[in-house]
Design a protein around this nucleic acid. Sequence first.
DNA 1: AAGAGTATGACCTGTCCC
DNA 2: GGGACAGGTCATACTCTT
Length: 709
Amino acid sequence: MVIGTFLFCLQGVRGGFGVELSRVKSWAERLRVMLLFHGIVGAAVLGSELGENMDGNASGEESVSVDWTTDDELEILAEPVTSSQPKLATCSREAIAGNVEASSSAGASRVKLINHFVGMGFSEKLVSKAIEEHGEGDTESILNALLTYSTLEDSPEQQLSINSDPSSSDYNETLQEDLSDMDSWSEDEIESVHYVLLSVYNLLCEEKHEHVSTDKRNVVTRSQIQMTSENDKPVMWQPSSLSEKDKKLLALANMGYTVEEASIAMDRCVKELLYTVMKNDIYAYFAMIMYMECLEIVAKASVAVLTDFICAAQMAREEDCYLLEDDLKPKHLYNGNSTNKKRKFYEMCRKKNVIEETIRLPNPMIGFGVPSQQPEHINRSLPEVARGPPYFYYENVALAPKGVWDTISRFLYEVEPEFVDSKYFCATARKRGYVHNLPIENRFPLIPLPPVTIHQAFPLSRKWWPSWDTRDKLNCIQTAIGSAKLTERIRNALERYDGDPPETVQRFVLEQCRKWNLVWVGRNKVAPLEPDEVEMLLGFPKNHTRGGGISRTDRYKSLGNSFQVDTVAYHLSVLKDIYPNGINLLSLFSGIGGAEVALHRLGIKLKNVVSVEKSKVNRDIVKSWWEQTNQRGNLIDFDDVQQIDGERLEQIIDSIGGFDLVVGGSPCNNLAGSNRVSRDGLEGKESSLFYDYFRILDLVKCIMRSRQV
DNA sequence: AAGAGTATGACCTGTCCC
DNA sequence: GGGACAGGTCATACTCTT
């Protein structure tokens, strides 16, 4: 049974090395099956989320438009629900539960209890037996009994008898197919896959021990695998399949490391990589991609890399504790010591070429060109799957933690991000990455061209601008402004001197001016930008965010989170010729409507705009702008991207005839360098909404494709 | 209660120098 | 090549004021 389940998964592992969507989707189901099978409740929730997130249908029904079951899944789903195999039971929990309910003559509570355990992956027969032995009241004893039964069934002899059971012939066929497929695997491939799956499994067991007592289950630990005496042979792992690992351990031992050190290092190598995958709140696609990366990395890991891990492990041991040994809370990845380790880990991997070279930011940051400058070489070829319609346009901060843009690009159909600093368009810097499938020829800028220097933007400030402040561009506009206390301190520091202040004072003042984007508004007086000045710099109409119940602080916040309109408009300008009659726009994370304003200013008619924005204040700003600009199209707004599921999208697409453009800049909170508290990367609370952008975009593509057929 | 003010680093990159 | 250094960053949590 266990062998079958693992082989079932292994087949997926092998198929999952690429990023082809159907394989990833297939994988999610496989992982869910594995997790459910092992009764790891919390992790199984993750597994089930994988499926739900993929078709955007939380009810668990298959979306018409998304076919994420591959042939082999369909085969398994078709298997009889009365099979005694937990693997089968987990494929359709609802179906099984219904079957159990219908066939059982027990009372309601008993049916519920049976459903509960069947839903965890145990067969109805075993569950009934366990309940009879332990009564309905003691669920823990029932669970332990079920786990014990499973352990007994896992022995090869038992496995044989189960497989010979006529009622499980379908399962038998599947298993044989899996086995035959394995014949074509290389030894290294099998070894790597075994090893990683084992690590995932053990890690899950460690993390979830509060739910399931591991000592009563057939958990094969690393120590068990290393046992070589006859009595201690692992139940489910053939020693031959681990020879490569043993060779590595031996090589490390020969280099003077103890077997324990080598073993721990190998464990940590995988655990470090897999840590992110194991958090329950992580989104499915990311988890799957990370998982596949782990497999690849470990498969490629050389002895030299592992020696580095031993060094890291030794260093870690000298310190208080290692995050993955003692505490698996996410925050530990982002505090002092662990971040250093993480960095060391990445550095080591990069040195050893274990991790592929990450996307690097261009210098100058002009993407595929800005009005005043063109890069020397443009190498742009879109993968077939990425081509529109619909066109898509995704934006986020360029200076995100390492690896974030690689992930974003990988999800968005392997399209290379275009990194552009808005200082080439206006008087303020704004380094952003844009992933889009738009043509890049024949772009044109918005007219009139905005001021591109501070003095052009704020001519009145020239009078007060000291010669030693050499700035001609402002830094990135953020969500908070410099305080009055700070500007007062600066004034006090400068008023002590008649002429130019000493260099130390100049340096202090300049540093603060750069940090807080202060401009000179009088003799010795600096001040933060006013909200309307920020609106102008970012390309919005004056007073765009003013009034209607929005506070000054909120204006800064909304503007700080917005697009730079001229930059975005330059990229979107190519749509004007493609859609002379206007476009249907899906705008996710609309904010104050940067994309809408850009398209409007380009003269591209907005036929139907579906706008999704959480902040009511921002939604009101867009609504107000929509009315003031006398738009003739329809503005439909939603407040949460997670409400947008396949069904709703189908309705919208059927009524408006499809989207021409899907725009979105997902939250950057957990990516932005200014965040000192929760710069958690793409898996952060807000920034993980990127996966909703991808989910919705992918749904739109699928639905529109299905409508064309 | 809402708005405004304030203190709170770390990560990443580029540059310089040895 | 690598170490030191400088600059820049779509923020957050708490406290104070109105």
